[in-house]
Design a protein around this nucleic acid. Structure first.
Lengths: 338, 338
DNA sequence: TTTAATTAAACAAACGTTTGTGCATTTTTT
DNA sequence: AAAAAATGCACAAACGTTTGTTTAATTAAA
């Protein structure tokens, strides 16, 4: 089995040329090294004939470059991240690089494991949506000179480069929107509490509330998951006073929330208003299309890739940390009251 | 910048041992080669101290193994594939392998490009959802001895191993369900026509219809996309006689279909019934939860990985092509008529 | 006490590339 | 016709591992 893989040497033998010549032709350095036209042609012909596929490992071992970018995200199950991954993969391909996508399963230990795997495969750069509240493992690689950029989630107290959304503004606007529609009893269901986007979203929510003079709002929840949205919503309605609006900090939380509301026969927006972070095609087809704060996924992808490549090419960059404006998309889940 | 990456040699120097000894300790072959306890300890200490990360490229070059599995899917934007990718990634990790996920953007040329990239990175195996109607590029690798398994989409006329769903039965059952609920004017909106799952789904639909004595059904469409679902549904209602039910062959098509219906103010299931292939959490929260034919994504993932690993371990396998039973999940999108 | 067996580790080749340097051969210049 | 320059390519080292073979030192057997 396993017909002998053919290599540069086979081509050298078959053409009667040396491996250095073959290598140079195959790498487009023929002119630079004055390889004769006939030799070039012979090499190319034989390479095609033998279906030569270069061994990147060998090349990479020699050059130290792998032409590969690692992308680590918390989970592909979340369409927001899947979308991000798809966009980044396509964008990276445009520049001739290959992407190694990895799903850390929202688990910090797995993230570290995957990261080690990537590093030991000599990736040229890393794009990561970190899922813990520690960044030593990332920072130490960055300090070693590995080009890195965090997207979506990042660390405020670190100098690690990032591209994300202005989460504060998004949350502020969403809350303002609810307030302008007459809501004052608003509950915010949050995700992982220590994550930067979550903290900033909560901050945006609180400040908008305080500015409006509302001081006894509720912020609850602890995970960017369907279950969390479901559970927190359930609990919410076992309290004395129901909110008139809910602000969920992710699309997954929103779905969980909707599930609970449905089970309790609470209608959106008739009985309660709902607005959420993250957009997605699916949100348009829900029972009630959800008004949301959309993140510019495509822009984030493009900027992250551009930025990473400039790091790889050792270009100087003054700006290393970017926040893009979110967009509020109004659908049908918020009702004006009073 | 780029603090010198440390290698096995640095450890050898620092411990005063040889690189072969270090290598053996690090690879857990210490006992086998009778390396002294103190030496072992020294090596491990120094490795930790220097934060040594092995260079898999060098190892792989030497061994020919990479401990990496390639996964190529049409697009992460489709939650069905994202789900599959996430499951497979997790499953593969359990066996100590790393997954390289790649999104071919539903494009045959890109698929070939990605495949070359993977091969040149010495992957030990390949799991692929092929997106064309040619398989030479895959088959030739298989013949060279690369362990391969197709999932979801596969080729009937090839001996390439696959794990997929019994698409025929799924479609047959879905159609039967519509018929049993009194529908006779049923339209099927299909995806890519040459793809095996699509062909079998259409076959299941047709046979169920014929068996029931209905001969003038419509099968239309040509892409597993939202747009296709949308367009075909639009066109459908410019015809003389409207169907009473639609069977969409993927979740993406279903969404497009729903969008068109909504725009035309046609209600599900009051005005028309709808059933679709593929399940997804989101389908439960739609305006009308969609009845569907669910594929056993998790089982497909597990079996595919198990099967691939057995190929890698050169175990004999009698059964190389597997079809799993789909499950019909009834929600609220099919109405009994007459 | 010499020889054999065991233990512990070193040597060196190989994996498939890339690349700096060197060496013929041919062409151009003087 | 001799020297210089240009052309076309080959040699060999290096990248960081793994692994088959040796070697040295220690212990056990004779």
């Amino acid at each position: 089995m396993a017909a002998q893989k053919i290599n540069i040497n086979d081509i050298a033998t078959k053409t009667g040329l040396s491996i250095s010549t073959v290598s140079r032709v195959l790498n487009g350095k023929a002119e630079q090294f004055r390889i004769g036209k006939k030799s070039q042609q012979k090499v190319n012909e034989v390479a095609k004939e033998l279906k030569y596929i270069p061994n990147k490992f060998a090349a990479s071992l020699r050059t130290g470059k792998s032409n590969t970018i690692a992308l680590i995200i918390p989970t592909l199950q979340n369409p927001f991240f899947a979308d991000l991954a798809s966009n980044i993969n396509a964008e990276i391909r445009r520049f001739g690089f290959t992407t190694m996508i990895s799903d850390s399963d929202e688990n910090f230990e797995i993230e570290k494991w995957e990261l080690r795997q990537m590093i030991s495969r000599n990736v040229d750069g890393l794009i990561i949506v970190p899922n813990g509240n520690q960044w030593d493992h990332i920072k130490s690689l960055y300090d070693r000179g590995l080009p890195i950029i965090c997207i979506d989630r990042y660390f405020e107290d670190s100098e690690l480069p990032f591209v994300s959304t202005d989460n504060y503004e998004g949350a502020y606007n969403a809350t303002k929107h609810l307030i302008e529609n007459g809501h004052s009893r608003i509950t915010c269901i949050q995700g992982v509490q220590y994550s930067t986007p979550n903290k900033l979203r909560v901050k945006g929510f609180k400040i908008a509330m305080e500015e409006a003079g509302f001081h006894d709002y509720i912020v609850t929840g602890d995970d960017f998951s369907l279950q969390n949205g479901y559970l927190e919503t359930e609990l919410l309605f076992h309290q004395k006073q129901m909110p008139t609006a809910i602000f969920t900090l992710s699309n997954t939380i929103a779905l969980g929330c909707m599930k609970a509301l449905k089970e309790m026969n609470i209608r959106i927006p008739d009985d309660i208003s709902l607005i959420t972070f993250d957009d997605h095609p699916y949100l348009n087809y829900l029972e009630t299309p959800l008004s949301c704060i959309a993140q510019p996924v495509n822009d984030i992808s493009k900027i992250a890739v551009k930025f990473l490549l400039s790091q790889i090419n050792k270009e100087e960059n003054r700006i290393k940390q970017v926040l893009l404006k979110p967009q509020m998309i109004l659908k049908k889940s918020v009702r004006r009251i009073i």
